[in-house]
Amino acid sequence: MTKIVVLVKEVPDAAVHKQVDSSTGRLDRSGEKTLNPFDTHAIEAALQLKESGALPVDEVVAITVGPAGAEKALHKAVSLGADRSIHLADDAVAGSDVVATGYALAELVKRENPDLVLLGQQSDDGQSYAVGAVVAENLGWPGLTQVIKLDVSGTELTCERQAEYGYDTVKVTLPAVISVGDAINEPRYPSLKAIMGAKKKPLEKLTVADAGIDASKVGAEGSQAVWQSAKQPPAKSAGEIIEDDDTAATVEKIVNWLDERKLI
């Protein structure tokens, strides 16, 4: 039997205006939060592997590293179909950079010893596309990111993705860490019953000490990349906006705009 771990992150809701805390140069993480939309594709990929029988999956475990509220993202993950979840919630990890976060996640993965780790192509807020590669490196496992097609045969994955010269097909041997692109599938919506049932699925809360994580390698102290105060880029004059209430009028405005610039 095989086990799949899915790494999920809580991010600010896209509909909410994001801003930077000018005293720290970091993202202001207050405000409405949600499960990183890209991670729902990773959960869906895990469920499809399980349901299709491509892998004899007996368990899908969602893991997150994040502040107290982040368990909302885990509730969403289990309502989508993960069997249980793990939350590393410890002030000691606050301020971790990509390498520190990936290290902590890898330690959590080790405790579960899965056959496959799936994650999203990018976090909506961090957007480093790098956490997967850091987790793979810490585990000493092969890894591949931005995968949009995943076929399994025994312990071999055949992955397709778009890289800088076109589409690549790459074979990867399990256990492996795979980040999936949003084109890989169409995530399902959780049923009302699943949403209600989510709170009953096991959620394990861990501290750095519980998980055997070296506290000196996480948090702002343990991070090698130091973020500094943000500045504003040179101001760009704002564009014109047309709200389309009356299509004939809208089209006329667009045509005039284009005509003034000799674009027609």
Binding site: V20, L27, S223, Q224, V226, S229, Q232, P233
Partner: peptide, 14 residues
């Protein structure tokens, strides 16, 4: 650049 390029952070390394 972060937040849709509305702001720029600076990063140094230890």
């Amino acid at each position: 650049p972060i937040l849709g390029d509305s702001s720029i952070s600076e990063i140094k390394f230890k």
